[in-house]
Write a protein that binds this DNA or RNA. Structure first.
Lengths: 245, 245
DNA sequence: CAGTGGTCTAGACCACTCT
DNA sequence: GAGTGGTCTAGACCACTGT
């Protein structure tokens, strides 16, 4: 009765194959964000398995952040955006308890071969080109971060047709909706440096003043690198908060 | 048949109460690290619940890192030591790829009422006293961090009988072995400041030079605060790396 | 009220580990 | 072969959300 086509992989546990099947429906857009997936009862009929097995597959997807359960309402495809709890990628608050999303202003977009270290991080060959964005983050009209962003051209070609002014304040949901690229995790490195002339000018501080440098490599659910970025912020107003579990 | 005493909390799900009960056995040392806990079949008899419920409780504890399963062998209490992967609390490497554990040197240990913000973080009343440690972290004989550590006296009274020289380089395994206090998670805040006279002297830098300040609140498995510490390091040699998931 | 996910049970069979 | 955790089933009742 496997009307859900659960062949694919060989001798994996049922719930794993189920998870893959459902993940596929999500990434392929068949089940869309903020939309309820079929109920557990329906899923048992669709796939011909017991409720417990469905639940276990859904457990995995919930743990992975792809689904969200709401008792009495249903199970929903989670929009990996940053409105709710998923504020993971903007912990460097500039003012105390700043909950607001800073404005993002893309200054320039070019296509060029990435520097060697960026190519290495993104897993690109020496010849391949990449998209570079230069961007400011502002709070109350004041520049708090200067960002240099590198994206593999292959994944993000559709970004080249968009007006710079139409880039949204949060890039990750934007990547998702425009390019189907979903960020799942990231690795960040913080260091402190002195501002060079360009950064100092953009941040409105004196050259040589201390700045915080955040280098981030963002990965997809397949753990492949998707974006590399380096951000600079004035050190004296900087605060970085994180929970380690 | 609840021979396992599962009263405690009111109307929590069974598997949650089970989890708490089992976590208690672990933190109390009744189930010791690297030792197998009773089998699922035994646990069902002990607590008078179904296997599925036991499994769900164990699932939670495994997810929390307290237990570890080994098919065909049993379920074991995990030693939350730092030899293996659990290197979570020393990401601020000073030299590139520095894998070595820096030396820790406790300069002083006093018992005094904590400052207001520390008492608040640790959940202590205004009157209660706390243990304060002042400590240096050194790599190759050079001071890289200056630390101010506060501990609730009630939990750490046994530390007062130990020679300062006998404090180990990694405090968290030390807390575990001497005081039965296991750190499960932490919350860190990074900022950049200018070195005051005392910090500058300890770090061997000039007063007013930029320093990185890390404030950390470390929690136990019961999510109660256990330790608060503030570390200072010279900004120019500082590197903080973290994986965000 | 009907429908949803959340909890819990009781038992089956399998894959692995150790002796 | 005996014992362990890993998977899977089938069905029960509950708590919550919507109408």
């Amino acid at each position: 009765m496997n009307s859900g086509m659960l062949a694919q992989d060989e001798r994996l546990p049922l719930y794993q194959r189920l998870r893959d099947e459902m993940a596929e429906k999500i990434t392929a857009g068949e089940w869309r964000p903020d939309q309820a997936i079929p109920t557990e009862a329906e899923l048992t009929k669709i796939y011909g398995v017991a409720v417990g097995t469905i639940r276990k597959a859904v457990d995995v997807l919930v743990a992975e952040g792809l689904l969200e359960r709401a008792q009495g309402r249903g199970t929903f495809v989670r929009r990996p955006s940053f409105d709710g709890s998923l504020f993971r990628f903007f912990r460097h608050l500039t003012s105390e308890g700043g909950r607001t999303v800073p404005e993002g202003r893309v200054l320039s977009r070019t296509v060029e071969p990435p520097p060697e270290h960026v190519a290495a991080e993104l897993g690109l060959t020496a010849k391949s080109k990449a998209i570079r964005l230069d961007r400011l983050r502002l709070i109350d009209g004041l520049v708090v971060l200067v960002e240099e962003i590198w994206l593999p051209k292959a994944r993000f070609a559709s970004l080249l047709n968009i007006e710079l002014a139409d880039f949204e304040n949060l890039l990750y949901p934007f990547y998702e909706s425009r390019c189907g690229q979903v960020i799942a995790s990231a690795k960040e490195t913080l260091t402190v440096d002195s501002a060079n002339a360009a950064v100092a000018k953009a941040l409105g501080i004196k050259e040589g003043k201390p700045v915080v440098v955040i280098e981030r490599l963002a990965l997809g659910f397949d753990r492949k690198p998707i974006e590399w970025r380096r951000s600079h912020g004035a050190a004296d107003t900087f605060r970085y908060q994180i929970d380690i579990c």
